[in-house]
Amino acid sequence: MIKALAVKAHSYVILADGKIPDPTRDAPDKLTSKVNTVLGLLAWVGTAAGVAGVLITGAMMAISMRRGEGSEHMGRLGMVLGGCVLVATAGPVVTFVFG
C-alpha cells in the first residue's frame, strides 16, 4: 500500500503522485431540493422584513419630523439597511464558499 503525502501549494492539495483530487458531490436530490426550498423561503422572508423595516423607519422619521423632534432614527435606518445587505449577500457568499 502506497501512502500518498499531501503537499499544500497555492491553495491546492497535490498528492505525491501529482494528481489533484476532484471529489464528487453525492448529496441526495430530495435533500438538496428541500434545503433549496427552505433557503429560498428564508431569503424571501428576510427581504420582506427588510422592506417592512425601511417603510416603518421612514414612517417613524416622518412622524418625528412633523412633531419637531430630533432625527435619532438614522441609526435605526442604518441597522435596517445593514440587515438588508446581509440578507442580499448571504446566498452569493454561501454559493461562493460551498459552490
Rank of each mutant, 00 (worst) to 15 (best):
T89V: 08
G75V: 03
V97A: 11
V85W: 05
R67P: 00
K8R: 12
D26K: 04
T24D: 12
A27I: 15
S33T: 15
A52E: 07
A43C: 05
L42E: 07
I2R: 13
I63N: 07
T47W: 04
A48T: 09
A4R: 13
G99N: 04
V87P: 00
D17G: 03
K8N: 12
C84P: 01
G78I: 01
A16E: 15
L31V: 14
R25M: 14
V94C: 09
I14A: 06
G75S: 07
A49Y: 02
C84E: 01
A90N: 00
P23N: 06
R66C: 07
D26I: 02
V7H: 13
P21E: 08
A6C: 12
A52R: 08
G82N: 03
A16G: 14
P28R: 14
A27G: 06
H10N: 15
T89W: 02
W44P: 01
F96R: 10
L55S: 10
I20Y: 08
P28T: 09
L31R: 11
A6E: 13
G78A: 06
V7S: 12
I20D: 11
V35M: 11
G91I: 00
V38W: 06
F98S: 06
T95P: 00
T32V: 15
T95Q: 05
H10K: 15
V51F: 05
F98G: 04
R25P: 10
I14Q: 03
W44A: 15
L55R: 08
I14L: 12
T24F: 05
A88R: 03
R67S: 09
I63Q: 09
C84Y: 01
L81V: 04
L77Q: 00
I14G: 02
V7W: 10
S71G: 11
R67A: 07
V94M: 14
A49T: 04
G46T: 01
L41V: 04
D17P: 01
E69K: 13
K30G: 13
L55I: 08
V7R: 14
G58H: 07
M74Q: 02
K3Y: 09
H10F: 07
L31Q: 13
S71H: 09
G99Q: 03
G99H: 03
A88V: 01
A90I: 01
R76I: 05
Y12W: 13
L77I: 01
G18S: 12
L81P: 00
P92Y: 00
G53W: 02
V80G: 00
A6M: 12
I2Q: 14
L86F: 04
H10Y: 09
F96Q: 09
V38F: 04
E72V: 03
S64E: 03
S11Y: 14
T32K: 15
A6G: 14
A62F: 07
